[in-house]
Design a protein around this nucleic acid. Structure first.
Lengths: 361, 361
DNA sequence: CTGAAAGCGCTTACAG
DNA sequence: CTGAAAGCGCTTACAG
């Protein structure tokens, strides 16, 4: 026992089994799975009958089915979907290609997508396309190897060549928040332009005049659109915007941005952070390092409506990601029958009013 | 165009393609995949040669391999891992069964696990076992259907019967933070007892005397262990602990807990929240609703070391989840050859010192 | 409604 | 090093 023990019985009882030897003596091959053949034999029917018993809508007599089910239960039989996929030419597998899974927005998207896809009878394979773990290209190759029916790219850009392979082999390919519009793919995105315009307008109406924009050094289409439209809208009103750009799309960058911004000669009185994570960093810099009050000394708007945006320490005004809608539409494209109409979509990102922007100064 | 347009060229250029019709006219079956047969024909070799070209270590002449590779590239051939799995009796699939993916701790664990598993040549299937999306039982059934080589249960308890099926069919089953120790499974957990004891000791040494414990209504083994050991340790020191218990393991519950605790007749001067999410809620209640200062008026300790614990608004003292170690060990069990020794493990959760506990009052 | 048979795309002894 | 052949576990026309 590596742990010092705790006097309370219950306390020690909860832990400390670590050293126990539950010997995992397993034959290298392992007990075989039961096959349809064996079930057939046991049930006294043909192999085909077993297949029919597990195929919804197949024509089979009620008592034949009953016999099969009984035998299957006794043997612990489970249809082998790999073999089934081989015959049916569709595997039921949907691949989700994603980097930065641990990020609030993406993990929420992943949760919604996997849940809805499962409910629709699909099974999801997650391909982590993070820096270290290979790239989107490698991920798409796996998608091909496992004959996924469809693949959804949540972040990152697939190389054209390999994406084309997916398409060529009959896969459905849905791309989120990209703007390359590769022919044959379904492109889903969010109305970043409108949101950014709204953000600028909100600041201006409230009376803020020294605007700043904080974005990361990662130029994804979404981030770029938010940035550019915010600048354009402010520009139309004759207001210049101080742009801070750099680092990863993360809290730390926001903290840096805020620190730089508020220690500059002309500190801003309002900042649009292209992401909530950045916004939280900016707010923390403003408050904890410069004693600025939000929203009186400085207004802040973010994007994504991550859980933390609603926490009392931030209470951030932001734009919600229409995650549920994106998931629904993806399921429709991926699991629905033949979607022949143009399936591209742009979803609205609704403004979520909280207290980080003054109604008017 | 549903969007009002933005004057800047670049701005409108970024968006607004939503209405475009990139007609997805796709034959319902889709262009077929190239098969090894076709590659063989094109390369002028046998079907077996093609197999060998894609099997590391198989005996094949360099130029035969070259011919095969060329033909494969031209045809866009990708080995069908489903068929391969059928023959090899192992699919390379590892299932991760998990509820609450969008939670900071679990999404981080998921990220680590999927990344490391991929690096080890496995492919991961995620089974969302959340409330709505079916349960752990359904998930494990999928695991069986797709003949996963192993399955890792990150949260929730599998029914014994179905877990047994996994074992019976030769799967490796690793359970995280459970204490049922089903024979044949590998159990990985964290030293909750020690951490909870440390938390109590820290408070006592700093001079806090009116202790409280906040936990959710979800009695997982980890949470229960933390709770009980904290109580036991305080008890040994002759200090009573006010326990608040209820709701989900989430920020909201922490907020409620804090509100209840600080409006009670004898408000605590230190609270151990069994999870960082709860701790953040407690801190926000203390500060924003009761103007308590942390750590002077009240000390707070959490568990998990989620990203937010390190944010300036919280700067929470907590215990780190040894996520990387857990992932490493899992890979070893799952992807490593034959792990015949007892593979159960209890990992330390190191104390992460930040500023939410006074050194001494 | 049912069974015998062909076939999905692969791998792996088995001879050569 | 190489090819012909058997077989992994399933589904699906095809006759009956």
């Amino acid at each position: 026992m590596t742990l010092q023990s705790c006097v309370s019985d219950e306390c020690t009882a909860m832990q400390g089994r670590g050293g126990d030897l539950s010997k995992t003596t397993r034959p290298s091959v392992g007990p075989a799975f039961a096959s349809a053949q064996e079930v057939a034999r046991r049930a006294g029917v043909s192999r085909s009958a077993v297949s029919r018993a597990f195929t919804p809508g197949a024509s089979i007599a009620p008592d034949t089915r009953a016999k099969v089910e009984a035998a299957a239960a006794e043997l612990g039989y489970h249809v082998n979907h790999l073999a089934r996929g081989l015959m049916r030419q569709q595997t039921g597998i949907v691949c989700l290609v994603v980097a930065d899974i641990q990020t609030p927005y993406l993990s929420r998207l992943l949760e919604n997508l996997s849940r809805r896809l499962q409910e629709a009878g699909k099974v999801v394979m997650v391909l982590n396309a993070g820096r270290a773990s290979g790239n989107v290209e490698g991920a798409l190759r796996q998608t091909l190897n496992y004959r996924a029916d469809a693949t959804v790219v949540l972040s990152g850009t697939p190389y054209r060549s390999i994406a084309q392979s997916c398409l060529d082999s009959g896969q459905r390919l849905v791309l989120l928040n990209r703007n390359d519009h590769l022919p044959g793919t379904v492109n889903l995105s969010v109305d970043n332009a409108r949101a950014a315009r709204t953000a600028a307008t909100l600041f201006l109406h409230a009376g803020y005049r020294r605007l700043a924009l904080v974005t990361s050094g990662v130029g994804t289409p979404s981030l770029t659109a938010r940035r550019n439209c915010f600048l354009a809208t402010a520009g139309e009103a004759g207001v210049e915007v101080h742009v801070w750009e750099g680092g990863a799309t993360a809290y730390e960058s926001g903290l840096q941005a805020g620190t730089a911004l508020f220690s500059s000669a002309e500190p801003p009185d309002a900042v649009f952070a292209v992401t909530d994570l950045l916004a939280c960093g900016v707010m923390d810099a403003a408050r904890h390092r410069f004693r600025r009050r939000v929203p009186d000394d400085v207004g802040v708007i973010g994007f994504d409506d991550i859980e933390q945006a609603g926490w009392a320490s931030y209470d951030l005004t932001t734009f919600g990601q229409p995650v549920a809608e994106i998931a629904d539409w993806t399921v429709r494209v991926v699991a629905g029958g033949t979607v022949e109409e143009p399936a591209d979509r742009v979803f609205e990102a609704p403004l979520v009013w909280r207290s980080s922007v003054a109604r008017s100064l």
